[in-house]
């Protein structure tokens, strides 16, 4: 009995360490964002301090407000997500269910495009956007973001669509729904969950993207990730303010991540089974 108790205790301790290692840096960031700059640099570090929202006020409404950057991120990510889903769902349906000519190679092609490392593509993207004058524009960024969102979204949707029983579709066809209405009224309502999860993942990936944003963006279109990065490289770093900005930038992905929590393993492995993630 006592050996058992000891083992349980050890397990618990191990789990707590684990929890701490993953959660602590984020909690530490949260604490830092609520400190004054003086408290941040205090040694030994203060665990008890007077929390302040001044950093948040400053990064949102101060001279170097990140609100325009949040807006840029939202526009790029939002439109990318919508366009991606509009293109990916029909394509996934064709791959999952229909007699698409060259289906196997089509599927493999989508998969292969997902494996290209972004650094490999950034040079042609830069040169082309420069030539057509789309550097630092929303349309340029969104066009490029589509290229890495689409393959992932297509494969994730294929895996959800494959789970819909084929007979359901056949019943709808016999019920005179025709192909388009079968897709809209019978198939899609059954993969609502999958569509929601895919949308969340596409949004997450686009929101977190950095390389394309820093190279292809500029003064007009600067996403929040790029703005934060400039924070540390340009000014003498103000830790607390940076932490506050990071907290704001992280909030959407953490909320979405928690919402999609149950599906995250599936979402990540679909990318894995059928190819590679692209960050």
């Amino acid at each position: 009995m006592s050996r058992r108790a000891l083992r349980a205790l050890l397990l618990l301790a191990g789990a707590s360490v684990l929890l701490a290692v993953w959660a602590f840096p984020i909690l530490w960031g949260l604490l830092t964002s609520l400190k004054t700059e003086r408290d941040v640099l205090a040694y030994p570090p203060k665990l008890i301090f007077e929390p302040t929202l001044a950093n948040y006020r400053e990064v949102l409404f101060g001279s170097a407000s990140i609100l325009p950057n949040l807006w840029s991120s939202l526009v790029v990510t939002g439109i990318t997500t919508i366009l991606t889903m509009l293109l990916a769902v029909p394509a996934a349906y064709a791959l999952a269910r229909l007699d698409l000519p060259g289906k196997r190679s089509g599927g493999f092609y989508v998969l292969a495009t997902q494996m290209l490392p972004p650094v490999g593509l950034i040079i042609p993207y830069f040169l082309v956007l420069q030539r057509v004058g789309w550097l630092d524009t929303y349309q340029g960024m969104i066009a490029i973001y589509l290229t890495f969102s689409l393959p992932f979204a297509i494969w994730l949707m294929v895996s959800y669509l494959e789970d819909v029983p084929r007979e359901m579709e056949e019943a709808a066809l016999l019920d005179r729904a025709g192909r388009i209405r079968t897709l809209l009224y019978v198939i899609l309502p059954q993969v609502r969950g999958g569509i929601a999860v895919t949308t969340i993942f596409v949004f997450l990936n686009a929101w977190n993207e950095f390389l394309f944003a820093v190279v292809l963006g500029g003064n007009r279109v600067r996403t929040v990730n790029v703005a934060m990065f400039n924070f540390i490289s340009v000014e003498q770093t103000l830790w607390a303010r940076l932490a506050a900005a990071a907290m704001i930038a992280m909030a959407p992905v953490i909320i979405l991540g928690l919402l999609a929590q149950r599906h995250i393993v599936k979402g990540l492995t679909v990318g894995a089974v059928k190819g590679g993630g692209r960050r």
Partner: peptide
């Protein structure tokens, strides 16, 4: 369940934010 949630945190963060976090806080 709590552990699973903790595990999801790093995954959903932007790598650039993670890099900055470690550089400035850790």
């Amino acid at each position: 369940a709590a552990l699973r949630i903790a595990a999801i945190m790093p995954i959903v963060l932007a790598p650039v934010v993670v890099g900055m976090f470690w550089r400035t806080l850790v």
